[in-house]
Measured scan of single mutants.
Amino acid sequence: SADYSSLTVVQLKDLLTKRNLSVGGLKNEWVQRLIKDDEES
């Protein structure tokens, strides 16, 4: 899986927004959300 934890907050928020995922919570929660989205898609 991609190394989301190395991305900036701005990059992570951009990815979350593009995938229609929530940008609520902490940075590590966003990373988990993106990883989960990868596994489900």
Rank of each mutant, 00 (worst) to 15 (best):
K13I: 15
W30K: 04
L12N: 00
Y4M: 02
L16S: 01
R19Y: 05
E29H: 06
D14V: 09
L34D: 02
S5G: 12
Q11M: 07
L26S: 15
T17K: 14
Q11W: 02
N28E: 15
S1G: 13
S22R: 05
E39D: 08
K18W: 06
E29F: 04
W30F: 05
L12I: 07
S22N: 08
S1Y: 14
L34E: 02
E40C: 09
Q32T: 09
L12P: 00
L26Y: 07
K36N: 09
T17E: 12
S1V: 13
D38T: 03
D3V: 10
L7M: 15
G24S: 15
W30T: 02
E40F: 10
N20S: 07
V23F: 09
K18A: 11
N20D: 08
S1M: 14
L16C: 05
R33C: 06
D38M: 06
D3W: 14
T17G: 08
Q32V: 06
Y4Q: 00
L34F: 00
G25D: 05
L16Y: 01
S22K: 06
K18P: 00
D3Y: 15
V23M: 13
V9N: 11
N20Q: 09
V9G: 09
E29D: 15
S1Q: 13
E39M: 14
G24D: 15
K18I: 10
E40I: 09
L15M: 10
I35E: 09
N20R: 08
G24N: 15
D37R: 03
Q32Y: 06
A2M: 15
D38Y: 03
D37W: 15
N28P: 10
K13V: 11
S41T: 10
K13S: 06
S41G: 08
G24A: 15
V9S: 13
W30P: 00
S5V: 08
Q32H: 07
L7N: 01
Y4R: 00
L34H: 00
R19Q: 05
S5L: 10
S22Q: 07
V9Q: 09
T8F: 02
K27I: 13
V31D: 02
T17Y: 09
E29I: 04
R19D: 04
N28R: 07
I35N: 07
K36H: 08
T8S: 12
L7V: 01
I35W: 05
D37E: 06
Y4D: 00
L15I: 12
S22C: 10
D38W: 05
N20H: 11
L16F: 01
L21E: 03
Q32A: 13
Q11L: 05
E39P: 01
S22I: 05
Q32L: 11
A2P: 14
D37I: 02
E39A: 11
S41A: 13
V31I: 15
G25T: 02
E39S: 08
K18H: 10
L26I: 09
N28Q: 09
L12G: 00
D38Q: 04
A2V: 15
Y4I: 01
T8N: 08
I35L: 10
S6D: 08
L15K: 02
L12M: 04
S41M: 11
N28T: 11
D3K: 14
L26G: 15
N20W: 04
D3S: 10
T8Y: 00
A2T: 14
D38S: 03
E40S: 12
S6M: 12
L16V: 02
D38F: 05
E29W: 02
I35V: 10
A2S: 11
L16K: 01
D37Q: 09
R19F: 05
V10C: 13
D14P: 01
S41E: 08
D14E: 15
N28K: 10
K13D: 02
L26R: 13
D38H: 03
L7G: 00
S22P: 13
S22W: 07
Q11C: 05
D38C: 05
E40H: 09
E39K: 09
K18V: 08
N28S: 14
E39W: 11
V31H: 01
K36C: 12
S5F: 13
E40W: 08
L15V: 04
L16W: 00
N28L: 10
K18Y: 08
Q32F: 07
E39N: 08
W30Q: 07
T17L: 15
L12D: 01
D14L: 11
D37L: 05
S5P: 06
E40D: 13
D14Y: 12
D37T: 01
K27H: 09
